[in-house]
């Protein structure tokens, strides 16, 4: 599973970075930097919350 952020939708609210600090940090303009995107099973619940709580619907989980 892969974590995907649509940069064209993202407005930098930062919800995803709070929920998934191991994957995401915020840059100086307050936009998320995805340091790695391979989602561990143990983080799936947090990732699902990031998907549902992102106000811009910019976060998704890609099953590959």
């Amino acid at each position: 599973m892969k974590l995907v952020i649509d940069p064209t939708r993202c407005q930098g609210h930062g919800t995803c970075a709070q929920l998934l600090a191991e994957y995401i940090e915020m840059d100086k303009w307050h936009y998320p930097i995805l340091n790695h995107n391979r989602l561990k099973d143990s983080h799936l619940d947090a990732a699902k919350r990031a998907v549902s709580l992102c106000p811009e619907l910019a976060v998704s989980i890609l099953i590959d």
Partner: peptide, 11 residues
């Protein structure tokens, strides 16, 4: 810039 992506329109 299309002004859609933060790193592009800020950077």
């Amino acid at each position: 810039s299309a002004g859609q992506c933060g790193p592009c329109f800020n950077g």
